[in-house]
Computed example of a mutant assay.
Amino acid sequence: MMSLNRYRMRHLAKQGHGGAKRASQLLARTDRLIGVILIGNNFVNIAAASIATLIAQRIWVDNPELGVSIATVLLTLVVLIFAEVTPKTIAANHPEKVAYPFSYLLRPLLFLLMPFVYVVNTIANFLIRLTGIKLDQDSKDLLSTEEFRTLIHEAGAMIPPKRQQMLLSILDLETVRVNDIMVPRNEIVGIDLDDDIREIENTLRNSQHTRLPVWKGNINNILGMLHMRNAAKVLAQPEFTKAELLQATREPYFVPETAQLHNQLFNFQSEQRRIAIVVDEYGNVQGIATLEDILEEIVGDFTTDMSATSLDVMPQDDGSFIIDGTITIRELNKALNYELSMDGPKTFSGLIIEHLESIPDSNICLKIDDYPIEILKVKANTIASAKIYPIPK
Rank of each mutant, 00 (worst) to 15 (best):
residue 3 S to W: 13
residue 4 L to G: 02
residue 8 R to H: 15
residue 17 H to L: 07
residue 19 G to L: 07
residue 21 K to H: 09
residue 23 A to H: 01
residue 36 V to N: 00
residue 37 I to Q: 05
residue 40 G to H: 02
residue 40 G to A: 04
residue 50 S to V: 09
residue 51 I to P: 00
residue 51 I to D: 04
residue 55 I to E: 04
residue 61 V to E: 10
residue 70 I to K: 00
residue 71 A to P: 00
residue 84 E to Y: 03
residue 85 V to S: 10
residue 89 T to Q: 15
residue 91 A to W: 05
residue 93 N to G: 12
residue 94 H to A: 15
residue 99 A to W: 01
residue 101 P to C: 14
residue 102 F to Y: 14
residue 106 L to I: 15
residue 108 P to V: 08
residue 113 L to T: 09
residue 117 V to C: 05
residue 118 Y to F: 13
residue 122 T to V: 12
residue 124 A to K: 02
residue 142 L to C: 11
residue 147 E to P: 02
residue 149 R to C: 10
residue 151 L to Y: 09
residue 158 M to C: 09
residue 159 I to G: 01
residue 163 R to P: 01
residue 172 D to H: 10
residue 175 T to D: 15
residue 178 V to H: 05
residue 185 R to F: 08
residue 186 N to D: 12
residue 187 E to F: 14
residue 189 V to D: 15
residue 192 D to S: 03
residue 193 L to F: 08
residue 194 D to N: 14
residue 198 R to P: 10
residue 205 R to Y: 05
residue 209 H to V: 05
residue 210 T to S: 15
residue 218 N to M: 07
residue 221 N to F: 06
residue 228 M to L: 09
residue 248 A to V: 04
residue 249 T to E: 00
residue 249 T to D: 00
residue 255 V to R: 04
residue 258 T to S: 15
residue 260 Q to Y: 11
residue 260 Q to N: 09
residue 274 R to S: 12
residue 278 V to C: 05
residue 287 G to H: 01
residue 292 E to G: 10
residue 308 A to H: 15
residue 314 M to D: 10
residue 315 P to D: 12
residue 322 I to F: 06
residue 325 G to L: 00
residue 329 I to W: 02
residue 329 I to M: 06
residue 331 E to Q: 12
residue 334 K to S: 13
residue 339 E to A: 14
residue 342 M to D: 07
residue 348 F to T: 01
residue 351 L to T: 00
residue 355 H to M: 02
residue 358 S to W: 10
residue 360 P to C: 08
residue 362 S to M: 10
residue 362 S to R: 11
residue 365 C to W: 05
residue 367 K to C: 04
residue 369 D to T: 06
residue 369 D to W: 04
residue 372 P to D: 05
residue 372 P to R: 04
residue 377 K to W: 04
residue 377 K to I: 05
residue 378 V to P: 02
residue 379 K to E: 09
residue 381 N to S: 11
residue 393 K to T: 14
residue 393 K to H: 14
